[in-house]
Structures are given as structure tokens and as C-alpha cells.
Design a protein around this nucleic acid. Structure first.
Length: 517
RNA sequence: GCGCCUGUAGCUCAGCUGGAUAGAGCAACAGCCUUCUAAGCUGUGGGCCACAGGUUCGACUCCUGUCAGGCGCACCA
């Protein structure tokens, strides 16, 4: 059971019954144990409309609280209701749910079929650290959304057509023929390597990117080729469709889309006056393809360097949905850039000049677990400053090891457990520290749901650090394995449950849960 | 000039969509291993939540303005 959801329902039920009120119920985790495991401030919010003192409202609610077997309730000034989960319930949950291999999995989003697009780097050069961030975010998000019950399909849009690609081919051709690299061509150190391959440069670079992502633990259901949209005629079909619906129009020798109908500050070109499609037009065709494949939730992770693109894309998908008579849930998650430093000196990341550090190299230096953790532990919209030397130095101190260590520590304890233990009859919550630990375990499903709804993977590592901390403290105070076999069995329950949740949480962000460290 | 994002401890960042005394990790200092993993634990110091107004019983959180930083403003991709 999810206690928070239970409380919200019952509180809402009470308000309806007592005063016929229907308001959102704020439910929070108090920062001090004496204020309970959960609390609500709803009485304060209702004071005005009920014309009563918050404290009186809270008291009345407490008097009518009839779910004492789940939570007891206390009133605190100026009008809080503080809920205390029953130890017996915690103990029972610890023996069942907390140990379940899919604990925290829900059907919250089971009505959603989501297409999550992320990374979508141009196949014109190696992936950089920013791609690493989108990759880690996207992969974690996909795992979290799936765990919340959604059907998630992961795609990488391959821009294997257009000017950049033509320029890349010209560059490679020039190098192979020992000619000068054309103006605006690519100059990275990797160019020489690509030119030496007996392979199509685009395919070569793409497989290189795939390899890097694979090493990073990030995989896709499909690498969607932009070229295929041209070849299948999807682009023209989509444009004809938009024209027939009157939202695309010809002017000044070009074809335009009325993106101003939906928040953009000017209409955008779909077909240039030279007859070529814009990148935008092809991307619209791609999104039309997503819709045609039955996806209604279209989530894109986009680098902040492309955020100027958001408004027109939102407008385009809105127009497509309107024209098709479907409702879509289109959401763009902006991943802010990663500024790369080495010993405090900024490192340039231009593909053109070639002075860049690739994701592959950083991955090599820092390691997969540490890098993945580092990339998802922060909110997506914070500007991340990443110093390679600092990160290398700190890799020993990286919070990922703190969390993993808790897991490994537990594995060590479990290895030392006596081979046979008596059956546990309750008493699992035998100390304040045990109680704090159980409460953390109880919150795991709530955290997963919050992360899924807010599309914020960073909540998972945040939670894991808290859980690990509470466990380390518990471990310091209480000895698990003792002569008292009954006590040992009781404590083993909680420890095993903690291991389970740590492993589940780490898995959600694609980080391993080592048995030994 | 316009738009998006950011501004919280010396540093890197949380702060649960408006609630109780603003938290964590590094860094500094002082302690804790004959017992299950010391990659751990305990304690100390460190804050005008950029600034100024406003809304509210109540603001780090919402609104307006200012300042600072990042990014973007194509018939490029």
C-alpha cells in the first residue's frame, strides 16, 4: 500500500463528510520525527472558507479520524495534523512489500504510451559530455516511467540527411583525396580517423556513437533515420496534409507554417524558396510519424542550446494534433548544458575546431557508475559545471559510492547470517533508528511516482542518499547479528528490505549495486 | 533589443509544486575500529535563500522590477 495516497484519500473523505469541502490535500514529510511521518496543513488553508480557527478544524478532524490501525494522528499548532504510521504496519510491510522484487512498481501511468526521444545527436562527430547528460537523463527517465506503469518507447533521431551531412561527406572526401578541407568543413582530430575507414562516414560515426552509448549503459528501441522520412514520402505527405488543413501557406516563394497560432513569435518556413525542406519540416514529419504510430505522449529531451526551437515545435505538434483530431501530450524537457573544465580552465567543445573532449574519454576517466550518477543527481535545468580533474579526484568521494557502499555493506552482513533463523513474529521495529529506516522504505513508491510525474530523475539519487544515510546510522548504532537468533531474524528483515530498495533505486538510474566493495 | 534557464554555506547542489528552527556532500577542525565492510559514524564552525517591492494567516517557493551568469534569437541543422 502507498500510505501517502491512503492518507490523502481519507483526509479528503473527512473534509467532504464534515464540511462538504473538496480541496487539494497538501501532504508533506515533516523534517522532525516529533511532527510525525506525514503531515498536512490543510486546516490552515480551510480556515478562511470555514470561518473557523485552523486549530479547531484540525481538532475536529482528529476527533473523527478512524484509521488508527494505519496511522495515529496528533494536532499541532497552528493547525497541523501530524500522522504517525503504526509500527505494527511498518513491520508487516517490511516482511512483505519492501522485500518484493518489484516493490514500488505501479500502474499510475498505465494508460500512457510514451515515445521518449533523447540524445538525437548529429552523426557528424563524437558525442560530448552534454550528450552524456541527456543520455543518462533519458535512460533513467524511461526506466522510471516504465516502473510507474507507462509503456515507453525510446528513440534516437538520426539526422542523416541535410547540409551538415553533405558537409561531412565533402570533408571526408577531401581528406581522402588529400585536398584542402572545404570552407565550414569539419576539423576535429577524429576526421582523420573517419577518413581512413573503408566505410560510409555517417554509418561509421553512428556506430561509434552507439558503441559509446552502449558502454554508458544507454540503449534505444530504435534509431530513427531522418533519411527514411524523405524516402518514404512522409515529409511531402505531412506538408500536403498541413496545407490542406490551411495551417501551411505559400508566401514569398516559400511554404510557411502558422506557428503564431500557438505561441510562436513568427511563422516558420517549411519549404525554402529553393524548393528544399527545412530541418523543421522534416522534424514535423517525424512527429507526425510518431502520432501515426499511436503515441499520444511525445516526450523529448532537448539540449538547452536548442531551446529556441521549443515554441515552434510545440506549435507544430499542436497543429498536427488539431488537424488529426487527436489529443497529444507533448512535453519538452530542456537539459541545460554541461560546462566542461579541466583544472579550472574551460574546455571548448566545438566539433569544427576539434578541440574537444568526448563523452567516450570522460567515461573512460570517470567510470560508468560515477558518471551516470553525477549526470542524473542534479535537476535537468541546472547549469552543470563539470571539472574533469575535480571529478576524477572526487570519484572516491562521489555520492554514488556512498549509496553503493550501503548496499555492499548489507551484502556483507547477509553473507554472515547464521544458516537458519527462526520465523519472525513481529517486533521488526525495535528502535527509533529502525523506525526511521522503515519510514524511508515506505516512501520509496511515493518517490518513484513523484519522479515519474514531474519527469525528474534526480529525485531518485536524492532519495537514495537519504536512505543510505539513515541505514549507515542504523548500522552504527545497532548490531544485526547477535547470539539472540530471534532478534537477529527480526533485524535481518529490515536490512534485507533496505538492500532491496537500494538495488531497485540504483537500477532505476542505471547504476550497478555491487555486492562487495 | 527579445526569449528560455539559473542565482541558497568557501565549493557542488537539494529543498517534497505556499507551511513548523532552510538541508546534504565536499573542504576545515575535534573525536570513534579486539565484535556484522571506517568508501562509515558523532560533534563544531559556516546563511540578509542575488537585490527591491508585492500577494498571503504564512514566501527559498507565486507575481513585478533590477542586477549578474549561461544559452538561444535563419528560407542553418
Amino acid at each position: 500500500m502507498i500510505v501517502r495516497t491512503f492518507l490523502k484519500e481519507k483526509i479528503a473523505h473527512l473534509l467532504k463528510e464534515l464540511w462538504n469541502e473538496e480541496v487539494p490535500i497538501p501532504l508533506l514529510y515533516p523534517d522532525q520525527p516529533k511532527f510525525g511521518d506525514y503531515a498536512t496543513s490543510v486546516a490552515m488553508a480551510l480556515a478562511k472558507s470555514l470561518r473557523q480557527k485552523p486549530l479547531d478544524i484540525a481538532r475536529t478532524m482528529a476527533e473523527h479520524w478512524k484509521w488508527q490501525d494505519i496511522c495515529t494522528v496528533e494536532v499541532a499548532p497552528p493547525g497541523y495534523l501530524n500522522f504517525f504510521v503504526q509500527d505494527s504496519l511498518l513491520g508487516a510491510l517490511a516482511q512483505e512489500e519492501f522485500l518484493h522484487p518489484h516493490y514500488g512498481k505501479s500502474t499510475l501511468l498505465s494508460d500512457k504510451k510514451i515515445l521518449l526521444e533523447y540524445v538525437s545527436a548529429n552523426p557528424t562527430g563524437p558525442l560530448h559530455i552534454g550528450h552524456g547528460r541527456w543520455a543518462a537523463l533519458g535512460d533513467s527517465l524511461a526506466r522510471i516511467l516504465s516502473y510507474a506503469g507507462a509503456e515507453v518507447w525510446r528513440e534516437f533521431y538520426v539526422n542523416d540527411a541535410g547540409n551538415q551531412i553533405r558537409l561531412l561527406r565533402e570533408t571526408i572526401q577531401a581528406v581522402r583525396e588529400k585536398r584542402e578541407i572545404p570552407e565550414n568543413g569539419y576539423h576535429g582530430a577524429y576526421i582523420a580517423d573517419v577518413a581512413q575507414q573503408n566505410e560510409d562516414p555517417v554509418q561509421y560515426i553512428l556506430s561509434w556513437q552507439k558503441e559509446t552509448l552502449k558502454n554508458f549503459g544507454v540503449e534505444f528501441d530504435r534509431y530513427f533515420s531522418e533519411k527514411s522520412l524523405h524516402e518514404s514520402g512522409m515529409v511531402q505527405k505531412t506538408l500536403d496534409f498541413l496545407t490542406s488543413k490551411g495551417v501551411a501557406y505559400a508566401s514569398e516563394g516559400a511554404l510557411w507554417l502558422r506557428t503564431t497560432d500557438h505561441g510562436d513569435d513568427k511563422d516558420r518556413v517549411l519549404v525554402k524558396s529553393d524548393g528544399e525542406y527545412t530541418y523543421f519540416a522534416v522534424d514535423i514529419a517525424y512527429h507526425q510519424d510518431k502520432i501515426k504510430r499511436g503515441f499520444r505522449s511525445l516526450y523529448n529531451i532537448l539540449g538547452a542550446d536548442h531551446h529556441g526551437y521549443v515554441k515552434r515545435m510545440e506549435a507544430a505538434v499542436w497543429l498536427l494534433s488539431q488537424a488529426d483530431g487527436v489529443e497529444t501530450d507533448f512535453r519538452i524537457i530542456i537539459g541545460q548544458l554541461v560546462s566542461l573544465y579541466r583544472n579550472g580552465e574551460p574546455v571548448r567543445m566545438s566539433k569544427r575546431t576539434g578541440d574537444m573532449i568526448t563523452l567516450e574519454e570522460v567515461l573512460e576517466e570517470i567510470g560508468r557508475d560515477a558518471l551516470r550518477y553525477y549526470m542524473v543527481m542534479r535537476k535537468a535545468d541546472t547549469h552543470l559545471e563539470f571539472d574533469i580533474e575535480e571529478a576524477k579526484k572526487q570519484s572516491e568521494e562521489n555520492p554514488v559510492f556512498y549509496v553503493q557502499y550501503a548496499h555492499a555493506r548489507i551484502c556483507g552482513i547477509l553473507r554472515n547470517l547464521p544458516p537458519s533463523l527462526p520465523k519472525v513474529q513481529g517486533g521488526v521495529i525495535d528502535s527509533p533508528e529502525a523506525r526511521l529506516l522503515a519510514i524511508r522504505l515506505l516512501r520509496f513508491p511515493e518517490v518513484v511516482q513523484d519522479a515519474a510525474l514531474a519527469l525528474e530523475p534526480h529525485r531518485i539519487p536524492q532519495y537514495l542518499e537519504d536512505l543510505a544515510s539513515v541505514f549507515h546510522k542504523y548500522y552504527t548504532v545497532h548490531r544485526i547479528i547477535t547470539e539472540d537468533l530471534e532478534k537477529t531474524a527480526q533485524r535481518a528483515i529490515l536490512v534485507r528490505a533496505t538492500k532491496n530498495v537500494l538495488a531497485l533505486g540504483l537500477h532505476l538510474i542505471g547504476v550497478s549495486a555491487p555486492e562487495r566493495m
